[in-house]
Simulated assay, not measured.
Amino acid sequence: MSDKIIKNLKGEKMRENKGFTLLELLVVIVILSLLAALLVPKLTGRLGEAKIDTTKIQLKEVKRALEMYKVDNGTYPTTEQGLKALVKKPDTPPVPKKWKQYLEKVPKDAWGNELIYIYPSDKHPFELKSAGPDGEVGTEDDISVWDE
């Protein structure tokens, strides 16, 4: 055998261990499984909260860009022009006279869905929102830039 014979402090001969026993590996696997069972639900809840927070931040950034657009051009982009007007100069009326690029690209929400933009809006100067985690517009999990 390739195991080396070594002496312990008392001078007794012992074999040097080269690895773990199957029982030791099983115990470690059980412990890791228990930890995962306890921690994964907590972490996934945090992930959902983080996606909501990320989407709120994105909405605020787009809102700032829309406000700068209005300052420069006297009006917000129309619903037809959409948020693309913040990235590329619109060629549909009203064509902005002092257009600049306000965003590098139009962001999506944290779930990969397009943001919803409507101008004019009934309650606010414009409506800017995400359909939320379920991806369906008009449900209670929608996230609006006006909600705080």
Rank of each mutant, 00 (worst) to 15 (best):
M1F: 12
S2R: 07
S2N: 12
K4E: 15
I6Y: 10
E12I: 04
E12K: 12
K13L: 14
R15M: 14
E16C: 05
E16F: 10
F20I: 13
T21I: 08
L22M: 13
L22E: 11
L25D: 12
L26V: 15
I31T: 12
L35M: 15
A37R: 06
L38R: 00
V40I: 15
P41L: 08
G45N: 14
G48D: 14
E49K: 13
K51W: 03
K51A: 08
T54W: 04
I57K: 14
R64S: 15
L66W: 02
E67F: 00
N73G: 05
G74K: 03
P77S: 08
P77I: 04
T78E: 07
L83G: 00
K84H: 10
K84Q: 15
A85P: 01
L86Q: 04
V87W: 04
D91M: 10
K97C: 03
K98S: 15
W99L: 02
K100N: 09
K100L: 09
K100R: 10
Y102N: 03
K105A: 15
K105Y: 08
K105W: 04
K108Y: 06
D109A: 02
D109I: 07
A110T: 07
A110E: 08
W111E: 01
W111L: 07
N113D: 10
E114P: 05
E114Y: 00
L115V: 01
Y117L: 08
Y117R: 05
Y119F: 14
P120W: 03
P125S: 07
E127V: 11
E127W: 09
A131E: 09
D134W: 00
V137A: 12
G138F: 05
E140Q: 14
D141Q: 07
D142A: 01
S144T: 12
S144V: 09
W146S: 13
E148G: 11
